[in-house]
Design a protein around this nucleic acid. Sequence first.
RNA 1: GGCGGCAUCGCCAAGUGGACUAAGGCCACGGUUUGCAAAACCGUUAUCCUGGGUUCGAAUCCCAGUGCCGCCUCCA
Length: 487
Amino acid sequence: MTLKFYNSLTKKKEAFTPLHEGIVNIYVCGPTVYDHPHIGHAKSYVSFDVIVRYLRYVGYKVRYVQNITDVGHLTDNADAGEDKILKRAQRERLAPAELVEIYTRSYFEDMDALNNLRPDISPRATAHIPEQIELVEKLLKKGYAYESNGSVYFDVQKFSEYGKLSGRKQEELEAGARIEINPEKRNPSDFALWKKAEPDHIMRWKSPWGEGFPGWHLECSAMSMKYLGKTLDIHGGGLENIFPHHECEIAQSETANKLPFVRYWIHNNMVTVNGQKMGKSLGNFITLKDAFKKYHPLTIRFFILCTHYRSPLDFSNEALDAADKGLERLHNTIKHLRERMEYTKDDSTSSSIHEKLEYYKKKFLEAMDEDINTPGAIAVLFDLSKEVNTLLDSDKEINKKCLEDIDTFYKQLGGNILGIIPDTLQSEQKSEAETLKNIMDVLIGTRNELRKAKQWQLSDFIRNKLLEIGIALDDKPDSTTWKKIKK
RNA sequence: GGCGGCAUCGCCAAGUGGACUAAGGCCACGGUUUGCAAAACCGUUAUCCUGGGUUCGAAUCCCAGUGCCGCCUCCA
């Protein structure tokens, strides 16, 4: 079995081999923390979480770095416009550092809820200004960059391979209607490594070129280099970042180091909402916090994994409802399995289901090996589920070892790899308090029917039994209330 | 305009030229089970956008057409 990835650079599925045997260095473009994360973030980071989990499962020692962008990402990709962090901070009347803290926490909160494992390192751009300045100096020294009026730009014409990832030609870009002519640039497609800070720009650092701030693309090159080395095994991100972001990263890193920057580029596809692209300007943004009000985070995770990471995902209530039911069915099987384990004696040694599990495991791993085909892998879980349900429903004796083996299968493949099966399943998604309230409503309703029918003996029985367990009923002329009392 | 992607059962969605008379989920219908339900199980539903081509063989490759979508603004 060989793990294969679709490499955006070569546009082919390729067998994966890391640069150093047994070790995988992976860098994934993280969020710009100026707002709450949305369902697009969820798709991206769930996808890469599963990739990392799978790499670990097959035995690699993985170092997973995912940056936190807290400076330099402008509202316009062509090195114009405002800094997103700064703009938002001014709007919310917060210091940029406060804003960044709020949304970084919000980000991790939502990612934790989705059951994404934390990256091994989450470096912040503002914490790596010296490294970025150093990289700019290196590029200047090597002649790939030039200073202009306090800013430094990368000279795209010096890097003949510019465009190799996105398939864009420089000449085509130059005439780009959407790129404002910047008189500081020698060439319209040159991009900023370092930007001069205007007097009112409060996010500023001292540099050899005066006070300023780093360009957005720079942080990924500088930080990946610092933590993962000059050549990464895997670089991931959303496909909207292929151009210009990743193209610029390649240019900076490869000219600085004279080495290939990334061996495998992995890009995930985008989320649409009811068939339409999700965009700030379209007003159809769905934050995860909103989505979680309606759907359990694991449902959203499951929903995401039901589509391949390179396919677009359409977010709609109908599709989410279907996913919710599907996941519930899967969880039901495991609940029943674990209940059965509780009262099955440990009396034998051999597992009769071993061969079958091996078969399903093989199918599961084959799907995962094929460019992380999570929908295929999930289908295997359902296939097994069907067999397990039949087994549990049958009158056959099942020994404990057999049940444990099935549970281990779910825990490893559904839990450790896909992250959709928790080690302990909550029997109720609703809170205990809510459930209790609902039960009491049913009980009181039933009892009132009995009272209407003058079934005093039964209704008194209910009241007395409830009192015994610490719940007092209070019959009023038109209603019945209840409260917990001290026994 | 440039670059890229997609089109598979009512809906969602896998599919690595031959075990595809096409996985899995949701929905629907029929059945088993059940005091009745629920849950569960069994069964039923597609020749893969259209038209050509390559091949012994194509959902899978090539060409043309049609229709959607994305990136090149905001955005993972």
